[in-house]
Write a protein that binds this DNA or RNA. Structure first.
Length: 434
RNA sequence: GGAGGGAUGGCAGAGCGGACAAAUGCGCGGCUCUUGAAAAGCCGUGGGGCUCCGGCCCCCGUGGGUUCGAAUCCCACUCCCUCCGCCA
């Protein structure tokens, strides 16, 4: 959530900032009006409440003083005021609920340096990398044997079985086999080991409460994108960001403990309701995939370093895997609801001839911390402050798997993988037919 | 799934209808004493909202209810602990 006080005190600033991402200024006016109405109602309710409390105290004193008649009269008056208060509270709650509902779907204020733009077409490419770039070699041109889509390579080798995955779960639920499954396992170990120096490894639950999914901003607005188990009212997580944010929900951290950095590999579940019919072949878009996430709770001052660190770690993995990639600075029109700034990392996959998003690193400022009430006690004293949260994938495996298989395909049809995976897949690491 | 116990501030733990944001201890911060430290003593120390800056209101797991008045009584739910059952 954005801070309602900012809306109250500097509505023009909020309108300008959110206008950059396409929010109608009248939405902000409505927020202001609801807020003002809410405060009026609250003040009225609290005056009544204070009256009830002071009358009740007098009842007690009168009774102890033996003045039964006076006590009865005061009690009657208090009861009347109490009824008035109950009615007032009902209206206050109604307006408060409406205000909260609006705030929950109001997007975050974009960072000043996030590029302006209306859609993904206006994202800005910040950098590009390919193997050998440091030695001055040109961008690689894929060979003919690398121009085979991963789903065909995988069928040849028997390492991915989408048809049988669909048999048990429906389409877009991949089933990896043999070396394909081993590759996935190797990637997770490879990444988690590399993050071990600074990030605590977590294995969180992957089914969460409604409140947990609301804290990150996925609810209420994007309920259609998530799987929901109705009987137990639990949601399948779309990313480890969701449980990790709630790890410290409602807590006050010590500044000395910040930045607090976590990493987690989890299954990620996405209904992809808005993309039905798109990218239905292979691994470009699936309902379930594995991803290693990096996460940080920081003070505001630590946030930009933490952001840079997550981006650097995602890039480091891609370089170690030898995959050509580019870094996109998302324009205001393409930012997710909670994000103030986001860098997407995309790898080029020669078989499908597409850039694939394999990481999205976001600085959320205090937007999720306010929803989740996660604060820190400043070392210098003073009241608790909201933390900043940052998250990023490093990395999402299904698309990495596809890119590795396409780039690594050799003329004989086997797949040569980067040496970085040798500890898990043999030296040299090669995927062969099942 | 069954039986029982529990949920209070950073932690431990009292409070069981009336000035309770809540004893006490620990922890933490400041001060005194001391060459310094320790010990001792004194003082302070939860969060949130609104405010005409005087204050006022809310928060004792969550949500309802009873009452003039609820941390305290009633109901429901959640979570934790112990035992039994079942189970990867």
């Amino acid at each position: 959530m954005i801070d309602i006080r900012l809306v109250r005190e500097q509505p023009d600033l909020v309108k300008a900032a959110l206008g950059r991402r396409g929010v109608d200024p009248s939405d902000i006016d409505e927020l202001s009006a609801l807020d003002e109405r809410h405060r009026e109602l609250l003040a009225r309710q609290e005056r009544l409440r204070a009256r009830v409390k002071s009358l009740s105290r007098e009842v007690g004193m009168a009774r102890r003083g033996g003045d039964g008649a006076r006590a009865a009269a005061l009690a009657a008056e208090s009861r009347a005021v109490g009824e008035e208060e109950r009615a007032a509270a009902e209206e206050t709650d109604r307006v408060a609920g409406e205000l909260r509902g609006r705030l929950l779907v109001t997007p975050n204020i974009p960072a000043d340096d996030a590029p302006d733009g209306a859609s993904e077409a206006e994202n800005v490419e910040r950098s590009r990398w390919w193997p050998g770039q440091e030695e001055g070699r040109p961008e690689p041109v894929p060979e003919a044997h690398q121009r085979v889509p991963h789903f065909d390579v995988a069928t040849e080798l028997g390492i991915l079985d989408m048809a049988r995955g669909a048999r048990m779960s429906g389409s877009m639920f991949p089933l990896y086999r043999a070396d394909g499954a081993r590759l996935l396992r190797a990637l997770t170990s490879f990444a988690l080991e590399r993050h071990r120096d600074a990030y605590e490894e977590i294995r969180p639950p992957t089914m969460v409460l409604t409140e947990t999914l609301t804290s990150t901003g996925h609810l209420p607005k994007f309920a259609d994108e998530a799987y929901h188990i109705e009987r137990d009212d639990l949601w399948a997580i779309p990313t480890a960001e969701v449980p990790l944010t709630s790890m410290y929900r409602g807590e006050i951290l010590e500044e000395a403990d910040l930045p607090l950095r976590l990493t987690a590999m989890t299954q990620c579940f996405r209904r992809e309701a808005g993309a039905a019919g798109r990218d239905t072949r292979g691994l470009l878009r699936v309902h379930e995939f594995e991803k290693v996430e990096l996460y940080a709770f920081t003070t505001p001052a630590q946030a930009s370093d933490a952001f840079a660190d997550i981006v650097e770690r995602a890039e480091d993995l891609l370089r170690a895997l030898g995959l050509p990639y580019r870094v996109l600075d998302l324009c205001t029109g393409d930012l997710g609801l909670s994000a103030a700034r986001t860098f997407d990392l995309e790898v080029y996959a020669p078989g499908v001839d597409r850039w694939l998003e394999v990481s999205s690193v976001s600085w959320v400022r205090d937007y999720q911390a306010r929803r989740a009430s996660i604060r820190y006690r400043p070392a210098a004293g003073g009241p608790p402050q909201l933390v900043h949260t940052l998250n990023g994938s490093a990395l999402a495996w299904s698309r990495i798997w596809a890119a590795l298989v396409e780039w690594g395909r050799q003329p004989d049809g086997t797949v040569r993988l980067p040496d970085a995976l040798a500890p898990w897949l043999g030296d040299p690491p090669v995927l062969t037919a099942r």
